[in-house]
């Protein structure tokens, strides 16, 4: 057991856990941030996607010890009001079915939009291939990313 000082969603948190504990379980069990989901534990499903310094990573593959010093963002902290363009687009297009994969989808998509504000279908295929949706809401996830890109562009253009 060791103590780690983390910065999560802009807040400082200190946790005492085994050093090999994946960030996923620190978030879920220690800090009660359960929006980050457990799906496979081996980096295959993307349900646990979070950001380290704005880059999408797998929470189940990130030992807590390696997350020290990074800005960690989870779905709960993506936008203070819960109104990130992707979150708005997701509600407007009614993307979710069961919803279990969707925090991971949104975290991967938000990292994509940050580096590529106007992604093509091909860009979306490449960026989103690591996120499974068992309910197969892929049609609407794709539409949601395009919609969010529009919303952002519209906001920047002042419309």
């Amino acid at each position: 057991m060791s103590t780690y000082n983390l910065k999560i969603n802009g807040e400082k948190k200190s946790v005492t856990v085994a050093s090999d504990t994946p960030l996923l379980w620190v978030l879920r069990d220690t800090l009660g941030l359960v929006g980050t989901k457990f799906g496979c534990g081996i980096g295959q499903c993307g349900a646990c996607t979070i950001h380290l310094n704005g880059i999408a990573v797998r929470g189940c593959q990130t030992p807590v010890s390696s997350a020290v010093g990074f800005d960690i963002t989870t779905i709960e902290g993506l936008d203070k009001e819960g109104k990130h363009p992707l979150q708005q687009a997701w509600c407007e297009l009614d993307v979710a079915q069961c919803g279990y994969c969707q925090s991971g989808q949104i975290m991967t998509a938000s990292a994509l939009l940050k580096r590529n504000p106007k992604p093509t279908d091909q860009d979306i295929d490449d960026a989103m291939a690591g996120n499974l949706c068992r309910c197969a809401t892929y049609t609407r996830i794709r539409a949601g990313i395009h919609k969010a890109a529009e919303l952002t562009a519209g906001k920047e253009a002042g419309v």
């Binding site: 359960v34 980050t36 819960g82 997701w90 009614d94 919803g99």
Partner: peptide
């Protein structure tokens, strides 16, 4: 008509909706 899911906003902000998210005081894993 087209009506969005009543829990959509909770889903996209990661609220504790699912079975796996449940916590009760003093619980073991």
């Amino acid at each position: 008509s087209r009506i969005g899911g009543v829990d959509n906003q909770k889903v996209v902000t990661g609220q504790p909706l699912f079975g796996i998210d449940q916590v009760i005081p003093g619980m073991l894993y």
